[in-house]
């Protein structure tokens, strides 16, 4: 719709609302920094020192990073068969897409609650296994890292499916046909045509899911409990129970730094892999 009209100041009022919203967002980020680096009246690294000095806090960071990497990889790998299924299901695609979209859009708490009902000591899986007679005492499936990884993976798979599917839908049909005519089997076609062309979507999913995981609060608290802390649950506790906004801000800055660093590394890997495919 680009008509390239000349600039007019009165029309510029149209972007005022968005500038206010963005201004408030970036303003809140500035607040975050000032809260994290201020103690009493002046500049201070006190809150960061408090975090770095505690070995158990470092464990929280490492646990969060490892779990997030596992979740991101799992989610992308498990999404591939679903995305391929939707890609091939021309007539049914819309209906199948609803099956993917609804779990994605249903509230995070509800989906996590579903996993509590499934994994809890008195939950569905344990009651069923005891009823069948496979086990006598309930297995501990949640309030540990396993529960958090299962929950987060399930919560984030729909996004990966959508991201990979949108890449797949860009592949032209005749590319596959050409590959077949030239004598490639289905495995070769997948390896040399479908997989490389779907990698951009897979990488987007990997990055977004990883970032969503390291900043997650609800699932780690509900499925991990307060003993197996993630960075998100630590921040929640700092705000809600300790009322220490400055320390929560310092944690948030560490989280931001971690995401930024991870983003740079992941982008570098993405570029290398995509270049290697050419």
């Amino acid at each position: 719709m680009n008509t390239g009209e000349p600039f007019s100041p009165s029309k510029a009022l149209m972007i005022l609302p968005v500038l206010i919203l963005l201004g408030l967002f970036f303003g809140s980020v500035i607040y975050l920094f000032s809260n994290a680096f201020t103690a009493g009246d002046g500049f201070s690294m006190k809150y960061f020192q408090q975090i770095i000095d505690r070995p158990d806090y470092i464990v929280v960071f490492i646990r969060t990073i490892i779990a997030s990497v596992i979740v991101a990889l799992l989610a992308v790998i498990l999404s591939y068969p679903i995305a391929l299924l939707l890609w091939r299901a021309d007539k049914w695609r819309n209906m199948l897409l609803i099956i993917v979209l609804v779990p994605w859009l249903v509230s995070l708490v509800v989906r996590t609650y579903g996993w509590i009902v499934l994994l809890g000591t008195k939950g569905f899986i344990n009651s069923m296994l005891i009823w069948i007679g496979v086990i006598e005492d309930p297995l501990s499936l949640m309030f540990n890292d396993l529960g958090v990884i299962i929950g987060l993976t399930h919560v984030l798979i729909p996004f990966a499916v959508i991201s990979i599917l949108s890449s797949l839908l860009q592949i032209e049909n005749n590319l596959e046909e050409a590959s077949r005519v030239l004598g490639a089997g289905p495995v070769q076609t997948f390896r040399y045509i479908v997989l490389p062309l779907s990698l951009p979507g897979a990488f987007t999913a990997l990055i977004v899911i990883y970032l969503a995981c390291i900043g997650a609060i609800v699932t780690p608290i509900l499925l991990g409990g307060l003993s197996q802390k993630f960075v998100g649950s630590q921040i929640y506790q700092e705000v809600m129970y300790a009322f220490n906004m400055n320390k929560a801000a310092a944690w948030s800055i560490c989280l931001l730094a971690l995401s930024f660093l991870s983003l740079v590394i992941l982008k570098k890997i993405e570029r290398r892999v995509l270049r290697g495919q050419e």
Partner: peptide, 14 residues
């Protein structure tokens, strides 16, 4: 691209 936990803390202050 802003982690949600950090966003919550930032917005609560603002």
């Amino acid at each position: 691209f802003f982690p949600h936990a950090a966003m919550g803390v930032a917005l609560v202050a603002l």
